[in-house]
């Protein structure tokens, strides 16, 4: 009996609310957020969406995740300033700052980035020198530890020549070794640990790089200072709660601290890796 009047009341309410919301937030900002394609876009989406939703809930800003399907696509967008916020490897962070002025906000305190070279366990390769003239898979040309730093170290320190195979992602690089399409693959401990046990057991590490600083969350300079700071503080604050730590751990930021470009990332320029950078076309 009274359901019809009730329903009519709501009908009246709906068109009234829209202009109200527009008035209170005249510029509803949505910030684009992307992540270095170490993993497949599906895995990226899976790991990052919960964190961004929590961040939106706490800050009131909206973040849209734009996972890149490969390093090319990612770096092109990044170096053109296509993302408001980005999670990128240390050298990308350095290049992004140099090209667009991206400002690192948060990095993990403890974790270090260590590049490794893996082969199939049943292969005869015991050292990097055994791989002279062989095919070595890399996630991408510009991936910092696994590719830039590794290629530079293999050519300049070990003195071997090799054919690179651009696999697109870390896991695909590992699979190139597993499926016999490459003799070795560059990688890092963090991504190797994420491989299924059956895969890990069939891989053997033949070479370690020196540890370097890890990835950072950076913001484009067009993002207002207040928003940058709020996002930085919120990410740091998340580590205070168990739920927050779980969300951070999924994206390899279990112990976040504030990042500082000059202190943390400018030193990477001294590695002289620019020759090895393959810029997107």
């Amino acid at each position: 009996m009274f359901r019809l009047p009730f329903f009519l009341f709501f009908l009246l309410l709906i068109p009234m609310r829209a202009p109200l919301a527009a008035e209170t937030d005249p510029q509803p900002r949505e910030y684009l957020w992307s992540v270095v394609p170490q993993f497949s876009p599906t895995a990226v989406h899976r790991d990052w969406t919960p964190l961004l939703e929590e961040l939106s809930r706490r800050t009131g800003y909206r973040f849209r995740l734009l996972p890149a399907s490969g390093f090319d696509e990612f770096e092109r967008a990044l170096f053109n300033g296509g993302y408001d916020f980005v999670y990128a490897n240390p050298y990308q962070t350095l290049l992004a700052h140099r090209k667009q002025g991206y400002i690192p906000l948060v990095r993990d305190e403890q974790r270090r980035l260590t590049g490794i070279l893996v082969v199939r366990k049943d292969s005869p390769y015991q050292s990097p020198r055994d791989l002279d003239g062989k095919t070595i898979a890399f996630a991408s040309p510009n991936a910092f530890a696994v590719s830039l730093y590794m290629r530079a170290m293999l050519r300049e320190q070990e003195g071997i020549d090799f054919t690179p195979l651009w696999a697109g992602t870390h896991s695909n690089a590992y699979r190139a070794v597993l499926l016999g399409r490459a003799d070795a693959s560059g990688g890092i401990y963090r991504t190797l640990e994420k491989e299924p046990p059956s895969a890990r057991h069939l891989l053997r590490i033949v070479y370690n790089l020196p540890s370097t600083i890890t990835h950072a969350v950076s913001a484009h300079p067009r993002v207002p200072e207040s928003v940058r700071q709020e996002v930085q503080l919120t990410l740091l604050d998340l580590a205070q709660s168990e739920q927050g730590r779980r969300l951070l751990s999924a994206v390899f930021l279990p112990q976040p601290i504030a990042a500082d470009f000059e202190r943390d990332y400018r030193p990477l320029a001294s590695l002289n890796l620019d020759d090895y950078v393959v810029l997107p076309r």
Binding site: S40, T42, A167, G168, T169, S171, R175, L179
Partner: peptide
């Protein structure tokens, strides 16, 4: 075609 074997495995 893309030789994306990790996604194929997934």
């Amino acid at each position: 075609v893309r030789e994306s074997y990790d996604d194929l495995e997934s």
